[in-house]
Design a protein around this nucleic acid. Structure first.
Ligand SMILES: [Zn+2]
Ligand SMILES: [Zn+2]
Length: 734
DNA sequence: AGCACGCCGACT
DNA sequence: GTCGGCGTGCTC
C-alpha cells in the first residue's frame, strides 16, 4: 500500500481545488484503492454537479466539523498535474489576487480532454483457416478485399473511402467471417520535429548568440535571455536552434506568440526548418483539435507547441525551454477574468520549472530592458544584415505648418509621398489608431453629441456597416434621421479621423487607388489576416489603412511608404506606456518596410515635433529614447521603477458603487512608499450600464503590492451586485 | 460557476 | 391567491 495513505485504511481524506472562482479547497473521502496523490485529477460531486478537480493534499485529519464528507468519484489517469504547474497556479493566483480556482480553470481549460477517447473500428482479413470463401464475390466485396493488397489493417473510415462501399458491405463481410474487426483508440499523431535538417549559415554575431543560448540550455537551470533584433537579424533562426537543441535533449518547448501570427506564413518557417507542422494553441482552434492537443501535450507526444497567451497553462511535463516572441506586445496582458501578464508568468513558470526562457523582440519592453540593466536577465543584440543604404528615412511632418481643411488629415508632404509611391508602383501604409469613420458624431444645429445609451462613450460611425457603434459595449444603432435633441433632419456632422474617413480622403486624391482597411472590424481571424497579407504581397492593393501593426511575421517587399497620421494620439493620456507604444510601433515599422533595392520612407505627422519622443523616433536613436523614457518613468515612479495597481469597483447601481468605493476608501492603508489615488470615476465612468469607480495604487519597488492590496481588501465583502476588480500592473487605463 | 431558496410586484 | 423576477448564499 502507498505510504501516504492513512493507516486506518478504510478511507483517506483529500483536499481538492475546483476550477471555480473560489480560493478554498473542498475535502472528500477517497477510496484507498485510488491511491491518490497531490496533483491527481479527480471527479468529485459538488452540490448536484460533478466537477473535475485537482488533489492538493492528503490528510489524516478527521474533519469532525464536516459530518458528511462526500466521496471522490474517480481518478483520471490521463495525467497527474506536475508540481511545477500547481505551483504556477498558486503563484499566478497570489500575483494577480485571483482565486486559485479561477487560475486552475485556465489549466483545465479543456475538460473534454478527460472524456474517454472514442475508439475506432479497424479491419483485417480473417486468418486463412477461418476464412470462409464464398463462391461468388460481389464487386463491392471484391473492392474491399483488394484494399488489403496494400495494407494489413485499416480503419473504418479509410476502408469505406478506398473500397468505395457502404458500411453495410463491411458489416456483412465481418458477419460472414471474411473480415476480422477490432476496436482500438486512435490517438491523433503529432509528428516529432526533424532536427537533423540543414541549417542556414550564420554570421559570427548569430553564431555567438546561438552559443550563448546553447550554454543556457545546457546549464539546465532557470535563466532569462532577452534577444533583440529587427527583421533580417536572424533572431528567429537563432531561437529555432535553441529549440532544436532542447528537443535533442528530449525536452518539450513552448513558444508564445501574439494571436495574430497563427495560420500565417510565419508558421511555415517552422515547417521549413523542422519538416513538420508545429502543434498550435489559440482561440480559433476547433474543439476536437483543442482536446487532442491538450492530451498530447500532457502525454508528451507534442514536443514543440506554438501558442497564444493561454498556452502558458498547458500541462507540459517535460518542459525544457520557453520562448516569448514579440515579448513587448501588450497582447500578453489579459484584462478579463484572471488579469495576468503571460510574459511575466512565463518567466515565473520557467523559474518554477528551473529552465531557460528566451524573450524575443524587435523592441524589448522597458521592463525587460531594465531587468537586463539590473543584471537579472542577460541580453543578446542582433544587428540587421542590411546596410545603412536601405535604412528607411524617417521624417517628422509638423502639422502646424500645414493647414488642413475640416475633415482632412493628410498633409501635403504625405500626399505627395503617396503620389510618388503610387507612380513607382509601390505600396503605402497609413496608420491611424481609430476604428470606423469618425470618433464623434454631432448635430450641426445644436451641438448634440451622439452617446451610447449604456456607456459614457461617444458612438463611433462605421460607414461600412452604416451603423453607429459603441466601442465599449458593442451597441450598434443606425444613424437617426433627426437630431434627438433639436429634431432637425439630417443635421449630423462627423468629427475626428478614423480609418474609413482616411480612406475617403485618400480616394478623393487618388480615385483609382486600390486599398484595404485593416482594423479589428475588417481583419478578424487568422484567415482574413492571411488574405490581407496575400493581397499585399501580390500587389493587388496599393495602400493599406491600418489601426495596428500588422507586420508580425510578414514580409512586404513593395511597401516603401508608411504614414503615421497622428503620432500624438499615442503620446497623450494617462497610460504610462503610451510613449513606449508609439516608439515601438515606429521602430517596428522602420524594421519592416522596404526591400533590398527599394529605399523606404516613414512620415510621421505630429503637432509636437520638438517632443523628445518624436525626436528620438525621427533620429532612430533608441538610446536617446530609452534615456528620456526611463527618466520620465523614474520621475513619476512608474513601472518598472515603481509598481502600479488599479482597483475598479463596478455596479449597475450608482448608489451602491459609491457606497462600496467609500467603504474601500475608509479602509485605505497609509503606508510608506505607497500612494493611493481615488476613488474617482474611471475614465469611462459607465460601461454597459455598470458604473465604475477606480483607485490607482502606486508603490515603490520594494513594496509587496499584492500584500498591501490583500490586506486592504480582505475585510471588504461587497454584495454580489457590486464587483471589485483588481488589476496588478494594469495596461488598460480606461 | 451553477443552482436553490426566498422575498416582493403584477397577473389569473 | 399564484407566477416569476433576481438578489443571496452555498457547495466538501
Ligand atoms: Zn440637434
Ligand atoms: Zn456602449
Amino acid at each position: 500500500m502507498h505510504s501516504l495513505l492513512p493507516l486506518n485504511n478504510q478511507s483517506c481524506v483529500v483536499s481538492v481545488l475546483l476550477p471555480l472562482p473560489l480560493n478554498k479547497e473542498y475535502h472528500y473521502n477517497a477510496n484507498p484503492m485510488l491511491e491518490l496523490n497531490r496533483g491527481d485529477l479527480v471527479e468529485v460531486p459538488f452540490s448536484r454537479r460533478r466537477l473535475l478537480g485537482v488533489v492538493l493534499s492528503l490528510s489524516n485529519e478527521t474533519h469532525a466539523e464536516l459530518k458528511r464528507l462526500r466521496w471522490v468519484i474517480r481518478r483520471f489517469d490521463l495525467l497527474r498535474l506536475p508540481k511545477n504547474l500547481i505551483d504556477l497556479v498558486e503563484w499566478t493566483a497570489s500575483w494577480t489576487l485571483a482565486p486559485r480556482g479561477s487560475v486552475l480553470r485556465m489549466v483545465l481549460s479543456t475538460p473534454s480532454a478527460f472524456d474517454s477517447p472514442k475508439s475506432i473500428l479497424f479491419y483485417a482479413l480473417a486468418s486463412q483457416e477461418n476464412r470462409i470463401c464464398p463462391k461468388r464475390l460481389t464487386n463491392a466485396r471484391r473492392r474491399v478485399l483488394s484494399v488489403f493488397n496494400d495494407c494489413i489493417v485499416i480503419d473504418h473510415k479509410n476502408l469505406l473511402r478506398k473500397a468505395v462501399v457502404g458500411s453495410r458491405v463491411i458489416k456483412s463481410m465481418v458477419e460472414s467471417g471474411i473480415l476480422d474487426c477490432s476496436s482500438a483508440i486512435q490517438y491523433p499523431i503529432f509528428e516529432p520535429p526533424d532536427i537533423t535538417g540543414e541549417w542556414e549559415i550564420l554570421n559570427t554575431e548569430q553564431q555567438k548568440a546561438v552559443k550563448i543560448l546553447s550554454s543556457r540550455i545546457n546549464a539546465n537551470r532557470f535563466s532569462v535571455t532577452a534577444v533583440e533584433g529587427i527583421k533580417g537579424s536572424g533572431k528567429t533562426e537563432v531561437y529555432f536552434r535553441a529549440i532544436a537543441e532542447t528537443l535533442a535533449a528530449g525536452k518539450q518547448v513552448l513558444v508564445l506568440l501574439p494571436e495574430i501570427v497563427f495560420s500565417s506564413e510565419w508558421l511555415e518557417r517552422f515547417t521549413d526548418r523542422f519538416a513538420v507542422k508545429p502543434a498550435v494553441w489559440h482561440s480559433a482552434l476547433q474543439v476536437r483539435v483543442r482536446r487532442d492537443t491538450w492530451r498530447a501535450v500532457a502525454k508528451g507526444s507534442v514536443r514543440v507547441l506554438f501558442g497564444a497567451r493561454s498556452a502558458l497553462f498547458l500541462p507540459f511535463n517535460e518542459l525544457g525551454l520557453i520562448v516569448v516572441d514579440e515579448e513587448h506586445e501588450s497582447y500578453y496582458k489579459q484584462d478579463v477574468g484572471v488579469v495576468y501578464h503571460a510574459r511575466d508568468m512565463a518567466v515565473v513558470r520557467a523559474r518554477l520549472e528551473g529552465i531557460p526562457i528566451i524573450l524575443v523582440s524587435t523592441t524589448l519592453s522597458l521592463e525587460t530592458v531594465e531587468n537586463v540593466r539590473q543584471g537579472r536577465y542577460t541580453s543578446i543584440h542582433l544587428a540587421a544584415f542590411c546596410s545603412d543604404i536601405n535604412k528607411p528615412e524617417v521624417a517628422l511632418i509638423d502639422l502646424r505648418k500645414y493647414s488642413l481643411d475640416r475633415g482632412n488629415f493628410l498633409s501635403q508632404p504625405l500626399i505627395q509621398a503617396m503620389q510618388n509611391t503610387l507612380d513607382k508602383g509601390e505600396q503605402s501604409m497609413l496608420f491611424i489608431n481609430r476604428r470606423g469613420y469618425a470618433p464623434l458624431t454631432l448635430c450641426n444645429n445644436c451641438g448634440h453629441r451622439l452617446k451610447c445609451s449604456k456607456c459614457t462613450a461617444w458612438l463611433v460611425m462605421h460607414q461600412m456597416l452604416n451603423q453607429l457603434i459603441c466601442h465599449y459595449c458593442g451597441l450598434s444603432t443606425s444613424l437617426p434621421k433627426c437630431c434627438p435633441l433639436c429634431n432637425i433632419r439630417d443635421s449630423f456632422i462627423f468629427s475626428g479621423p478614423g480609418v474609413e474617413r482616411l480612406a475617403e480622403e485618400m480616394l478623393l486624391r487618388f480615385p483609382d487607388v486600390k486599398f484595404q482597411i485593416a482594423s479589428s472590424d475588417t481583419v478578424k481571424g487568422p484567415n482574413s489576416t492571411a488574405e490581407l497579407v496575400r493581397s499585399m504581397q501580390s500587389k493587388e492593393i496599393n495602400v493599406v489603412i491600418s489601426t495596428q501593426s500588422i507586420f508580425k511575421g510578414y514580409n512586404f517587399p513593395f511597401l516603401t511608404l508608411v504614414g503615421v497620421v497622428d503620432a500624438d494620439l499615442g503620446l497623450t493620456g494617462c497610460d504610462p506606456r503610451a510613449c513606449e507604444r508609439t516608439y515601438q510601433l515606429l521602430h517596428q515599422v522602420v524594421g519592416h518596410v522596404g526591400g533590398a533595392s527599394r529605399p523606404a520612407k516613414i512620415l510621421v505627422q505630429t503637432l509636437a515635433p520638438e517632443n523628445p519622443v518624436m525626436q528620438a523616433i525621427a533620429s532612430g536613436d533608441r538610446e536617446s529614447f530609452l534615456r528620456f523614457e526611463i527618466n520620465q518613468r523614474k520621475a513619476f515612479g512608474m513601472p518598472p521603477y515603481g509598481k502600479l495597481a488599479a482597483i475598479v469597483i463596478s455596479s449597475l447601481n450608482l448608489k451602491q458603487v459609491d457606497e462600496v468605493a467609500q467603504l474601500i476608501a475608509k479602509a485605505m492603508p497609509r503606508l510608506n512608499g505607497v500612494i493611493i489615488l481615488g476613488p474617482i470615476p474611471a475614465p469611462i465612468a459607465v460601461i454597459r450600464c455598470y458604473h465604475r469607480r477606480r483607485f490607482i495604487v502606486r508603490a515603490d519597488r520594494k513594496v509587496n503590492i499584492q500584500k498591501v492590496l490583500r490586506d486592504w481588501l480582505a475585510a471588504i465583502r461587497p454584495k454580489s451586485s457590486v464587483r471589485i476588480k483588481v488589476d496588478v500592473d494594469p495596461y488598460n487605463f480606461m
